[in-house]
Amino acid sequence: MNKSVQMLQERYEEAIKQYNFFDFNFWNDPLDIERFYPAPGKFEAIEQIRKVCTAGVLMTNGASKTVDPGIGNGRLVELLNPADNVFGALIVTPDPQFSGPAFEEYIDKMTKAGVVALRLYPKRFYHSLSDTVCGEFYEILESYNMPLIISHVETSWDGIESLCKRHPNMKIVVDGGDAKILYHNRDYMAMLKAYDNLFVDTHGLVVYDEIEDLCKIVGAEKLVFGSYAVYNEPAISITSIAFAHISEEEKKLIAHGNAFRLLDGAGKKK
């Protein structure tokens, strides 16, 4: 028996219980085909992630990105259970035919079902992030106290900085998605330090000692645990926090505390 491997395994399993992870970046995607094993069913996927993310999940439906935002969002809300900390993030697109009171009515219905965040995909859905094009979303996000989640490869770091400046009351979480966010650490370290309303999801933060560095430079409160499951392996995101050389308090902040703070009151209109 390899004792050090046994000890690592025990540390990993203990960390799951000890830090009570909330997955801010969980995807439900029964249609996903680029995977080694058939995608788990919609309920099975939630059961699987809740085994390691005991505090809850912020979930997006993959079909919102690959089929149609409206269809995916519809499938998402059927699965939400705010009483059990299963919350939702919608993907929205700026369609003039679906704006104004109709859109606000839609958001009102969705937030009552457990939606607490919006995601924008400006490259994938071919739109600008300007206030002219997306201003309605920014107003909704601020008035419903919801965070905006956006990937660094869906815009530019200049675009993210511009959003932070233009909307200081809007909380913005950068999600590395399936791209190497680690190559951009010069940008996100500086911007997280400069903007109180900017946060980063941890699943792509895999550079050596990066979690420690970020805690020292920008503070643990700017890091939000995310796994990018069902696409990626959640254990990697867990060990990067659980085995980091940071305080227990910082680990708990990253694992669930920051997510709870970001989502506190989210979805309730001011």
């Binding site: 990993y12 390691v52 979690i211 060990t239």
Partner: peptide
Amino acid sequence: DPRTTIGTVLG
């Protein structure tokens, strides 16, 4: 970071 990549096996 090796502390990250060990998760591939541990999980």
